[in-house]
């Protein structure tokens, strides 16, 4: 299907039902993997997953519309500002474990559809633990200082020199899907480096692959179909199946997308310049 047909399919979807569209975008935004506790029978999106980082352990908040422990009291602007500016409704700075550095590019329409979906969920009263952070990060002032130096709020602007499929892919990869949060290396203070976009990284014990078009270090020998298929069922082009943290991403995000959106992601990734992986 061409880009035009893809856009038509998406807008048909949009006209239908904002909650349904929001559900789709919640998958595309990868919200579920982090905001669902890593235990059997966890309630999706009710928060509580521990995320270990070099800066300490973060516990993801409850995204169900409970008035007290969730986001039930948030206005539309509260919600959008969290993504665009990285601030909470009471004006506190978020730590970039919440990937607003990527989400800042998301459109207001898409964010409000996500909000509509989240507000359609059953409210779950569930307080989550306080973050357990290194001393130098253990205040919101640290988060504010980090932001002042390293964060530039900006919406996604389509590149008119590229086709719609590429632009859709760029939006999904860079912003909503926040792929770079894991696949782009960070410097010592946790800032993603634009000139090494998608060149791979290390996350705890796990080596996050280089997904640029480098033929040796990256996925330059994969076809667009290989990328699309991997994002759908997790098969590598040689027939092997990944068993990494990407399995969660495939399950809760990319396999739930339309084939056209996965092909859009592939189109964007195929356009990245080949980059060598950083030395460990």
């Amino acid at each position: 299907m061409g880009a035009a047909a893809m856009m038509a399919a998406l807008s048909a979807f949009a006209a239908d039902d904002i909650v349904e569209r929001g559900r789709y975008l919640t998958y595309a935004g990868g919200c579920i993997s982090c905001h669902t506790e890593d235990v059997e029978d966890a309630i999706p999106l009710a928060g509580g997953r521990a995320m270990e980082t070099p800066f300490g352990t973060f516990y993801s908040p409850n995204l169900t519309p409970d008035m007290k422990s969730g986001i039930g009291g948030w206005s539309d602007d509260d919600f959008v500002d969290a993504f665009w500016e990285g601030v909470s409704p009471d004006g506190k700075h978020y730590f970039p474990a919440f990937p607003y550095t990527s989400y800042t590019g998301a459109s207001r329409d898409d964010l409000l559809a996500i909000k509509a979906y989240l507000f359609s969920l059953e409210p779950v009263p569930k307080e989550t633990a306080d973050h357990d952070l290194a001393w130098y990060m253990s205040s919101r002032i640290a988060a504010g200082a980090w932001k002042a130096v390293n964060f530039e709020p900006a919406r996604f602007e389509p590149d008119p020199s590229q086709d719609e499929q590429w632009n859709r892919g760029a939006y999904l990869v860079r912003h909503l899907g926040h792929c770079g949060e894991c696949h782009t290396p960070r410097n010592a203070i946790g800032v993603s480096q634009a000139d090494t976009e998608m060149a791979g990284s290390t996350f705890g014990e796990e080596k996050i692959p280089n997904i640029t078009t480098h033929r040796i270090d990256g996925i330059g020998r994969w076809s667009a179909s290989d990328i699309e298929y991997f994002l759908d069922i997790g098969m590598l082009p040689d027939g092997d199946f990944t068993g990494s943290s990407m399995v969660d991403v495939i399950e809760d995000n990319t396999s739930k997308l339309t084939r056209d959106d996965r092909l859009a992601i592939a189109s964007y990734l195929k356009s990245l310049p080949p980059r060598e992986s950083a030395e460990d």
Binding site: E205, E206, I233, G234, M235, F241, T242, G243, S244, S245, V247, I250
Partner: peptide
């Protein structure tokens, strides 16, 4: 085929060294 793939993936995810 999809089910075969899911089965491979499920087992690797749980029983194989993370790559």
């Amino acid at each position: 085929f999809r089910n075969v793939g899911m089965s491979c993936r499920g087992c690797h995810d749980r029983f194989r060294v993370q790559q």
